[in-house]
């Protein structure tokens, strides 16, 4: 693991993650999570659904950002550095493909990259039907962007807009920093469970050692998620084929959490 993904996965990373519980606050309020065992089940389910979507998109974003960074470098030497899978993403986003014809290589790359980022954003939205979860993802993306611009400056962020999905941004940063897609996937898959685990410790006063052990026991599941994420990001010709596992109760919890505005809430999600 490189320093970049290590820092991004650190609970002390100043990206606003500590105010999100990833559904745990509502699950605790409903008695669905009440001890270490029920937390374990919650985290495993979260990892294999929302965590897998985030990991796959982070891996895809890391690939795209790495290509963008390479392309900028090689464009200066007059070389066409476009990659085939990115072509496919862009082609999917714009079937006409007419944009590439007259433009310079650099211009074509920029347009292509822009479409590819747009396709990733749209596909992530489509896999996040809960409005509350999309908002939480973009809120963390925006917060992370502030910290990221200071530490890993890059023009790539302009493609992601002011409120990128957190997983896409983390993937992009890893790609820019030269880390492989696997590390990007591992980082967001870990964040999909580490934040909620910490929230459960704070909300229920759970034994932090026991919760930490639960995280470690998730390693085989986390490895499997990372492997699927990296594999699909590398081998799917189009963004559409990235995994899209649903988590119906997570969606219900997220929506209920924002609906109870008058109630005591310590977390933003």
């Amino acid at each position: 693991m490189g320093l970049t993904s290590l820092v991004l996965a650190d609970a002390r990373f100043p990206g606003g993650g500590h105010v999100h519980s990833g559904g745990v606050e509502e699950a605790v309020a409903r008695g669905l999570v009440q001890d270490v065992e029920t937390l374990r089940g919650f985290l495993l389910g979260r990892l294999r659904t929302a965590g897998l979507v985030a990991a796959a998109f982070a891996a895809a974003a890391a690939r795209l950002a790495a290509r963008g960074t390479d392309a900028r470098g090689t464009d200066a030497r007059g070389t066409d550095a476009r990659g085939t899978d990115t072509d496919a993403w862009a082609a999917q986003a714009s079937p006409a493909g007419a944009w590439a014809a007259q433009a310079s290589v650099a211009g074509a790359w920029a347009a292509q990259a822009s479409r590819a980022w747009g396709a990733l954003d749209a596909e992530f939205d489509a896999r996040t039907p809960s409005q509350a979860q999309r908002e939480a993802s973009r809120a963390q993306g925006r917060g992370t962007l502030r910290a990221v611009r200071a530490a890993w400056p890059s023009p790539v962020y302009d493609e992601l807009g002011p409120r990128p999905h957190h997983a896409l941004l983390v993937g992009a940063v890893c790609g820019i920093a030269g880390e492989p897609p696997e590390e990007a996937a591992r980082c967001v898959a870990y964040l999909a469970v580490s934040g909620p685990a910490s929230a459960a410790v704070r909300l229920l006063g759970l034994d932090p050692f026991a919760v930490n052990a639960v995280l470690i026991h998730l390693e085989p599941a986390l490895d499997a998620v990372v492997e699927t994420a990296v594999h699909t990001a590398a081998h799917t010709a189009v963004t559409e084929d990235l995994p899209a596992p649903g988590a119906p109760v997570l969606d219900l919890l997220a929506q209920a959490h924002v609906a109870h505005r008058g109630r005591l809430r310590l977390f933003a999600s």
Binding site: R12, F13, P14, G15, G16, G17, H18, V19, H20, S21, A139, R142, G143, R146, A147, A199, R202, L203, R265, L266, F267, A268
Partner: peptide
């Protein structure tokens, strides 16, 4: 109003994101 995830000091000192937002 901002939520501080049970950690009011974190929100004003270590990770000021929610407040800046």
């Amino acid at each position: 109003a901002v939520q501080t995830g049970c950690c009011p000091h974190t929100a004003i000192r270590d990770d000021i994101t929610a407040n800046l937002d």
